[in-house]
Computed example of a mutant assay.
Amino acid sequence: MSNTKSSLATPSVISDFKEITKMRLALSVVFSSLAGYLLGVDVVDFKTLVLLAFGGYFMVGASNAFNQIIEKDLDALMKRTQNRPIPAGRMSVNTAFIIASIFTLLGIIILYTINKQTAMFGAISIFLYTCVYTPLKTKTPLAVFVGAIPGAIPFMLGWVAATDDFGIEPGTLFALQFFWQFPHFWAIGWFLFEDYKKGGFFMLPTGKQDKGTAVQTIMYTIWTLIISIIPVFGFTGKLQLSIVAAILVFSLGIGMLYYAVRLFKEMTEKAAKQLMLASVSYITLVQIVYVIDKFI
C-alpha cells in the first residue's frame, strides 16, 4: 500500500507544480515572446532565445502562483478551480509563495541579462497582473482591460529583447495582442459565466450574457483584425508584412470574426466556447505567419 502511495505522490507533485504555474498558459506566453524576438532580430542568437524562454516562463509562472495565493478562497468556490493545489489542500500558501518568489527573482535576473528594458517590462507585467488585475476581477469588468496589458506584453517583450528598443514595431505587436484579448477573455467569461459568478468575478463588459457583450466582442475582434494587417502598409518601421501574408492574416481574422458574429446570433455557451478556441488558434497562427513571412 505504501509503495502505491509513493508512486502516486510523484506525478501529483509534478502536476501540482504545473498547475500552480499554469504550465500550458506559460508556454503559450513563451511562444509569443519567442515569435516577437524572431521578428525583431537580424541574426538569431540561440543563447538569447533560451534566456528569453526561461525568463518568460518564470515571470508568467510567478504571476500565476501569486494569483492563486490571492484567490485561494474564491478558487474553492468554483468548479473550474476548486481542485487547484492550494484550495484542494495539496500545497500550502507558504510553498506557493516560495515558488512564486523564486520564479520572480529568476525571471527578472534572466531577463536583465538580455537587457534592462526586457527586465523592466517583465517586472511591470508581474506587478499589473498580481497587484492590479487580480484584485479588480471581483470589483469591475474593467479588470479585463487591465489584465490585457500584462497579457499583451510578451509579444512585444520578444522584440525589445532582440533590439533593446521600444518603438512603433513592438507597439504594434503589443496593440495586436492587447485587442485580441478582449474577445478571447469575454468568450471565456461567457461560457464560464455561472462558475465565475460563484467566485464573484465580473468578466463580461455589461456584466451579463447579453447582446451588449456580444456587440463589444465583435467590435474588438474587428479592431484586432485591422491592427493585424497594418504592417503591410509600411507604417511600422522594420515590422513588415508581404501582401500574401497580409491576406492570410486577414483571412484568419475573418475566421475569428465569424465566431464572434455567431456568438451574437446564438447567444449560447457553446458558441462562446467555439469563439474562445478560434481565438487561441488565431493568435498562434498569426504569429507563425508573421515569423515565416519575415524569413521567406
Results as ranks from 00 to 15, higher is better:
1 M>H: 07
1 M>I: 07
3 N>H: 13
5 K>W: 07
10 T>E: 11
11 P>A: 10
16 D>V: 08
18 K>S: 10
21 T>Q: 07
23 M>G: 11
26 A>F: 01
28 S>M: 14
31 F>M: 12
34 L>F: 02
35 A>M: 15
37 Y>P: 09
41 V>R: 10
41 V>I: 09
55 G>V: 08
56 G>Y: 00
59 M>N: 11
66 F>E: 00
67 N>C: 11
71 E>T: 04
83 N>D: 15
83 N>R: 14
84 R>A: 07
84 R>G: 04
84 R>K: 13
90 R>K: 14
94 N>P: 00
95 T>N: 11
100 A>W: 01
100 A>L: 08
104 T>A: 13
104 T>C: 13
109 I>K: 10
110 I>L: 15
112 Y>N: 13
118 T>H: 01
123 A>Q: 05
132 V>P: 08
132 V>D: 02
142 L>N: 12
146 V>D: 01
150 P>K: 05
152 A>T: 02
154 P>C: 04
155 F>Q: 00
163 T>W: 05
168 I>S: 12
171 G>E: 10
173 L>E: 03
176 L>C: 03
179 F>V: 02
179 F>L: 14
183 P>M: 03
186 W>F: 05
186 W>T: 03
188 I>V: 13
189 G>I: 02
190 W>N: 01
190 W>L: 09
192 L>C: 08
194 E>T: 11
194 E>I: 02
198 K>N: 05
200 G>Y: 05
207 G>P: 11
208 K>H: 12
213 T>V: 07
215 V>H: 10
215 V>M: 09
215 V>R: 09
216 Q>E: 13
218 I>M: 14
219 M>P: 03
222 I>G: 08
227 I>M: 06
229 I>M: 03
236 T>K: 09
239 L>H: 10
244 V>L: 15
252 L>V: 13
263 L>W: 02
267 M>K: 14
270 K>E: 15
272 A>F: 08
273 K>E: 14
274 Q>K: 15
274 Q>L: 14
276 M>R: 08
278 A>F: 12
278 A>C: 11
286 V>L: 12
288 I>R: 05
290 Y>W: 10
290 Y>G: 08
291 V>S: 04
295 F>I: 05
296 I>Q: 10
